[in-house]
Simulated assay, not measured.
Amino acid sequence: MEEQIELKKVFGDVFFRAGRKEDKSILYAYWYGVQSEETVKDGGYKMLSLIKEKPYNKLMNSNEHVIGSWDMALEWAENEWAPAMRKAGLRYLAYVVPASIFATLTVESLIQRIDDEFEIRTFKSEEQAEQWLMSV
């Protein structure tokens, strides 16, 4: 990735990484470990700033390494993050779903809440998600 940022929790654990691949015009976001409302908002606002800085209309959002639910942030994601990302130009959202059933249920709940904002698909691998994004 040409440019990559990462966000860490207080004790130094990385909970979010994001970057771009210029040749693919896709913003890539990766989430790690247990998420809180604060970490979800921090990562969400970081994605928003990256989209505003250099508008890309495609996001590959990987929850593959998320542990547990982050449903405490769903209302914020629906009412603030999704409309702001749409306004900033996001149109296609590829979600890589985790093995954790609780995190997967949270992703599915989010998709039900925001599917009118973007064209959204879920995938089991980053490769599949990227292939779809490249095709749209």
Score class of each variant (00 low, 15 high):
residue 88 A to N: 05
residue 6 E to G: 09
residue 7 L to W: 01
residue 28 Y to A: 01
residue 70 W to M: 06
residue 39 T to I: 11
residue 113 R to Y: 06
residue 22 E to R: 12
residue 27 L to Y: 06
residue 127 E to K: 14
residue 93 L to T: 00
residue 82 A to W: 02
residue 54 K to P: 10
residue 75 E to W: 11
residue 132 W to M: 10
residue 105 L to W: 12
residue 132 W to Q: 12
residue 77 A to E: 13
residue 27 L to A: 02
residue 19 G to S: 06
residue 36 S to I: 10
residue 40 V to A: 08
residue 62 S to V: 02
residue 97 V to M: 11
residue 26 I to Y: 09
residue 115 D to C: 08
residue 14 V to A: 10
residue 121 R to T: 00
residue 77 A to C: 14
residue 131 Q to R: 11
residue 46 K to Q: 01
residue 69 S to K: 05
residue 113 R to F: 03
residue 106 T to P: 11
residue 63 N to S: 03
residue 46 K to E: 14
residue 84 A to W: 08
residue 81 W to R: 08
residue 71 D to M: 13
residue 38 E to W: 06
residue 1 M to H: 12
residue 13 D to C: 03
residue 39 T to R: 04
residue 110 L to F: 07
residue 70 W to T: 08
residue 61 N to M: 01
residue 111 I to V: 13
residue 82 A to G: 02
residue 49 S to N: 13
residue 91 R to H: 10
residue 58 K to A: 05
residue 110 L to S: 04
residue 58 K to C: 03
residue 7 L to D: 11
residue 88 A to L: 04
residue 117 E to F: 10
residue 117 E to Q: 12
residue 91 R to D: 12
residue 108 E to N: 14
residue 118 F to M: 07
residue 136 V to Y: 05
residue 52 K to G: 05
residue 118 F to H: 07
residue 9 K to P: 12
residue 58 K to G: 01
residue 99 A to V: 15
residue 125 S to V: 01
residue 41 K to L: 10
residue 131 Q to V: 03
residue 99 A to M: 14
residue 125 S to C: 01
residue 126 E to L: 09
residue 57 N to S: 09
residue 112 Q to L: 12
residue 135 S to Q: 02
residue 56 Y to M: 15
residue 48 L to V: 04
residue 117 E to R: 05
residue 45 Y to K: 15
residue 100 S to E: 07
residue 94 A to E: 00
residue 70 W to A: 09
residue 39 T to G: 03
residue 6 E to T: 11
residue 10 V to W: 15
residue 24 K to L: 15
residue 84 A to K: 13
residue 66 V to N: 08
residue 134 M to V: 13
residue 44 G to E: 04
residue 76 W to L: 05
residue 4 Q to Y: 10
residue 36 S to W: 00
residue 135 S to P: 15
residue 93 L to V: 00
residue 65 H to W: 02
residue 111 I to T: 01
residue 53 E to D: 15
residue 44 G to N: 01
residue 85 M to L: 15
residue 97 V to H: 03
residue 121 R to F: 01
residue 44 G to L: 05
residue 67 I to Q: 14
residue 43 G to M: 01
residue 7 L to T: 13
residue 20 R to L: 03
residue 113 R to P: 10
residue 3 E to Q: 07
residue 119 E to Q: 09
residue 112 Q to W: 14
residue 86 R to W: 06
residue 130 E to R: 08
residue 41 K to W: 02
residue 72 M to T: 13
residue 6 E to N: 14
residue 7 L to R: 07
residue 58 K to Y: 03
residue 63 N to W: 01
residue 50 L to S: 07
residue 50 L to A: 11
residue 135 S to L: 02
residue 126 E to Q: 13
residue 51 I to A: 10
residue 60 M to V: 00
residue 31 W to P: 08
residue 120 I to N: 00
residue 8 K to P: 01
residue 97 V to E: 13
residue 72 M to P: 00
residue 52 K to Q: 08
residue 45 Y to A: 06
residue 27 L to K: 06
residue 16 F to M: 07
residue 132 W to L: 11
residue 97 V to Q: 04
residue 47 M to E: 13
residue 72 M to H: 10
residue 23 D to C: 03
residue 77 A to W: 01
residue 23 D to W: 02
residue 3 E to K: 14
residue 64 E to L: 06
residue 78 E to P: 12
residue 3 E to M: 10
residue 83 P to Q: 11
residue 89 G to C: 08
residue 114 I to Q: 00
residue 19 G to L: 08
residue 21 K to N: 14
residue 126 E to R: 06
residue 3 E to C: 09
residue 17 R to A: 07
residue 84 A to D: 03
residue 44 G to S: 00
